[in-house]
């Protein structure tokens, strides 16, 4: 359990409303702090605030503290909290929404490796229409910590030796169409 003090000075009264208007967050007001989510979460032990506590902070308007925390970056999308929440709050979807807000508003933290990973992935998919694991890992390691390249050389060799690391990337034919969809979709963002 952590003992993080909240740092935010002024309360953001609109934050609850902001989250409640995102898909999955509609029922967040119903959270009765039972802790089922935190008790089920596989990564709660490394989170600055457990999911239960994070929702208390959302309701109380601690926008800065919520977005500055590592909690939602550690969400693995395992959905155990979502299926167990007795108030039917779509917790995982809220975690996704927080990631998106944080990336848009550049809440870059000491430990924002997840953001770098996701962005590298998206760059490749938007370009080729397919993901390409070797490039994704190399890009990510260069962005965050180049010594990782060395630390993962053995893993890469093992995968290659077993025919599980392709050398050539795959691209879809309709790349232009896909880009047109993405461009239009971004203009329709929530």
């Amino acid at each position: 359990m952590n003992t993080h003090k909240l740092k935010q000075k002024a309360i953001d009264k609109d934050f609850l409303d902001e989250i409640a208007h995102l898909p999955g967050g509609e029922r967040i007001i119903d959270c009765f702090q039972c802790g089922t989510c935190s008790g089920s979460c596989p990564t709660a032990h490394v989170m600055d605030h457990t999911p239960r506590r994070l929702f208390a902070m959302v309701k109380a308007g601690f926008r800065e503290d919520v977005l500055n925390s590592n909690t939602y970056w550690y969400c693995t999308s395992c959905y155990i909290c979502t299926v167990r929440c007795p108030r039917q709050i779509k917790i995982t979807d809220v975690m996704y929404a927080l990631k998106r807000i944080a990336l848009k508003e550049r809440y870059v933290r000491r430990k924002n490796a997840a953001g770098a990973f996701y962005s590298s992935f998206v760059d490749i998919v938007e370009r080729d229409g397919r993901s390409f694991e070797p490039e994704l890992m190399v890009r990510f390691m260069l962005k965050t910590d180049p010594t990782l390249l060395l630390k993962n050389a053995v893993l890469g060799l093992k995968l290659m030796k077993h025919g599980r690391l392709p050398i050539r990337r795959n691209r879809i034919k309709a790349r232009n169409e896909l880009r047109a969809i993405i461009r239009k979709a971004k203009s329709e963002s929530l």
């Binding site: 996704y96 929404a97 996701y118 998206v122 998919v125 979709a185 963002s189 929530l190």
Partner: peptide
């Protein structure tokens, strides 16, 4: 990954 970065775009893709 995509849903962590974009809402409508990830779903449209």
């Amino acid at each position: 990954a995509y849903l962590s970065v974009e809402d409508i775009a990830s779903m449209a893709v």
